[in-house]
Every structure is written in structure tokens, then in C-alpha cells.
Design a protein around this nucleic acid. Structure first.
Lengths: 222, 222
DNA sequence: ATGGTAAAACTGGTATCCAAGTTTTGTCAA
DNA sequence: TTGACAAAACTTGGATACCAGTTTTACCAT
């Protein structure tokens, strides 16, 4: 009973465009035409239309009938909402996690943190970001809410798209690592307040970056 | 510059099907065919396909290539996630609200609660549910997070679809009203813990109902 | 009854065509 | 040169027909 969903042409178009938009290879405000994209991928308009619809549902495309479709700009409101939702879920998850924490959980998080340290020392920022990713996913699964990470990821993507405009340095990475240590310590010692406070500080770390980008790239906002 | 988005045929099909699925006029597991729906609405397959895609994105339809499309059953996991997200956001919103609470906020909530009381005494459950709706939206707007209500609403809809299988009585409504009073009192007196605890109790009120439905209607679950 | 095969049904994709709206372009007049 | 206006060239939304690949169904022979 392998109910593996087949990958369709629509999926391919969708995933490629999603990556290009999120990674800012296509900038906000850029007009995208169904026929143009269809030519580029060598497919008909149909799968492109489907992909556009999906991207429109994700607020990444602004589709206006009889007018051009364009890549949506950033919205401070939508970004604030995404951050609020992520913070809310992450806080609640942490609350669940501290209640069912045990030595195995500890080991998993410690392993991850050790790898983060190695990645920073090696200067491998890509690896570090992947581990950052895993760190938060681990907390979700260890708190018995694995699906919650999808929500967090969805929120994270919206913010990440904005933060692509800012270069990340390893000083920042070290601060992030310190936060992760604090959260892990809070969970390990059953200190809920410490875990929560660190989580809040951790997720508010982007405040300055976002405001900076808003000031320096006002054209990308709607 | 009236940028009012035009209503398309796709929108009409989507909204009608959405209502029919959410209100359980179409039961989970029911197979829906593009051509059949197209005939029913007197339109071509095109807008139906678009509508199907949207409903699939909302996890309401299960579309498998080359297989029949069917209305998705309930999933305890997805419902648990929706409830977790709603609780998380509602808790965080309450935290924001209590910080900026003032007499105007109080008045708005008190007005709403008074109307709830009237609706219950008049036995008008539909009105009461609408006011319940407004109560939670008010807290969002008063906490300066108006868009957060869209997230809450999205979560609420997923759970509501399940709860359509259970008849609501007015004893339940009275409990809900009591919760609302508790939340309002907590906010008014600046007692964050009271507001939070009542919110958690309020949102966990459906536990029994959901488990009951899961036991009595196992066929609607996937 | 059972097994196998053929027909029917379903979605995904392609190809045209048209409708309705918007934007660009071009022409002509002042 | 500049302005106004009309035509052409875009855009998406929808309708229709068709094919491919898969799954389901139905029927028939054993």
C-alpha cells in the first residue's frame, strides 16, 4: 500500500519558483507571466497556473485577473504575524517539552549543540543553519508535537526571505549558539522560565535586522 | 485606485464546495469528480480544477493523481495541531492584551458579553456563536494583533468541521460564557495568570467532544 | 465462486481558442 | 514638442477537445 504521491509537473514548477522567490533570485515586484514561465520550463500554461495558484495562497504571488501577476513585496504586518505565530508555538512547545524531558532528550540536544560548535569553528555557516533547523525540530519532536515544526518552518520561511537581504556573520551565529545552549540548559534543569525567556530572546534577535532592511530597502515593501 | 479583486468562477465553485465540506453536507470519504462537479455548476473542468487545488491546499480534499479525488477525513493529528496553534496564539495574544488593557477595551468586551447573555436567554445559539466569534476577535484587535484572528479562525474552522457531528446544547453555551467572563475579568484586573488559565480551560473544553466523536464516528477519520 | 481481461473512469497535461481587462504603442492634431 | 485618442499587444480566466497513464469496475470464461 505505497500511497506515495506522484510528483507532477505542477510540483516541479511550484518548487522551483518557490525556491527562487524565497531565495530572492526573483525580487519582489517582478512581474511573472504564465506564458513566459511556461516557455522557460518547456511546459504548457496549465501546470504554471496551478503553481501560481499555490504560490498565491502562500502570499508569495499577487495575482490580479487581467493584470500582470507579480512577486509580492514584503509586508511588515505579515512578517510580524509570522513571527508572532512562531513565537507563540515555540513557547507552548517548550512548555510541553519541559514536562516530558528526560536524559535521552538531553543527549539528542547536546549532540546537536556539539555539532553546531564544530560548524562554527569550521566556519561552515550553511551547516550551522541546517543544525539550527534541526535544533528547533528536535524540540518539537521531543515534546511530542512533531507536526508543529511544519508551522514553525512555514513562519520561518517568510522571515528568512526578508533576511536574505542581510548578510549573516559568524558573530551572529555565536549568539544563536549561546541561545541554544540557554534553552537546552533550561530544559535539562527543568527551569521553564529560563527556557522560555531564552526562547523569547532568541526569536526577537531579528528585530534590528528586520527594521534595518525595512529602512534600507523600502522598495521591496508593499 | 480600486484594486478590488474580481470574483471569478473559480471563486464561486471554491466557496460553495468549501461551505459544503465544512458544514458536512459532503461527508468525509465522499468521492468528488471534476467532471461531475463541472456538470453540476454548469462550468468547464478548468475552474473546478482550480477550486480543487485550493481545497487540496487547505487539506480538505485528498487529490491523488490518476485516482479519484475525495473529501479528506478527519485526522486527530491535524486537529491536535490546529488546536495547539490556536491555543499558543491565543495565550500569547492574551499576554499582549493584558499589557495594553484600558477602560475602552473593558467596555468593548463587556458589551459583547452582555449580548452573549441576551442571546443565551433568548435561546439564539446562532447569535451566541457569532458573538463568541467576535469575543475572540476583539481580544486580537485590542491587543493590537488584528491579523492574528485570521490564524485563530483558520484553526477554529478545522475543529468546527469535526464538531458539526456533535449537537451543541445551551448548557455548554453557559459554560463558554462563564469562561469569557473569567477571561474578561482577568484582563480587566490585570491578572494575567487568571486570564491565561481561563483561556487554557476554555480551549480545552472540546477535548471530550472530540474524543467522543472519534469513538462514535471512526469511519470519518483517516 | 473465482480469476483474468477488457472497458470505463479519473486526474494530469497539452493545445487552441475566446473573453475581458489593462498597458503599451503609435498616430495624428494642435 | 506635446497632448489626446485609438489601436495593438499584452495579461489572466474560462471553455473545449484530446491524449497519456493509472485505477477501478464489470463482465465473461473457467
Amino acid at each position: 500500500m505505497e500511497d506515495t504521491i506522484r510528483r507532477t509537473t505542477t510540483d516541479a514548477v511550484y518548487e522551483t519558483l518557490l525556491d527562487e522567490i524565497v531565495s530572492l533570485k526573483i525580487l519582489p515586484g517582478t512581474k511573472v507571466s504564465e506564458t513566459e514561465i511556461a516557455r522557460r520550463f518547456g511546459v504548457s500554461r496549465q501546470p504554471v497556473r496551478n503553481a501560481f495558484t499555490r504560490l498565491g495562497n502562500k502570499d508569495l504571488l499577487l495575482i490580479r485577473p487581467q493584470k500582470a501577476t507579480e512577486v509580492r513585496g514584503f509586508s511588515m504586518d505579515r512578517i510580524a504575524l509570522a513571527r508572532l505565530v512562531r513565537l507563540s508555538v515555540e513557547v507552548e512547545i517548550t512548555r510541553h517539552a519541559v514536562m516530558r524531558w528526560n536524559s535521552d532528550c538531553n543527549a539528542e540536544l547536546e549532540d546537536n549543540i556539539a555539532l553546531q560548535e564544530q560548524a562554527i569553528q569550521a566556519g561552515d555557516l550553511a551547516k550551522f543553519h541546517a543544525l539550527d533547523y534541526d535544533f528547533h525540530r528536535s524540540i518539537c519532536t521531543l515534546s511530542d508535537n512533531p507536526m508543529a515544526f511544519e508551522v514553525i518552518l512555514d513562519c520561518k520561511q517568510k522571515v528568512d526571505r526578508l533576511c536574505m537581504l542581510s548578510l549573516t556573520n559568524d558573530i551572529e551565529a555565536k549568539s544563536v549558539l549561546k541561545d541554544h545552549r540557554g534553552i537546552a540548559e533550561g530544559l535539562a534543569s527543568g527551569d521553564l522560565e529560563k527556557a522560555l525567556n531564552t526562547t523569547r530572546k532568541h526569536l526577537s534577535r531579528l528585530d534590528q535586522t528586520i527594521n534595518f532592511i525595512h529602512d534600507t530597502h523600502p522598495g521591496y515593501f508593499e
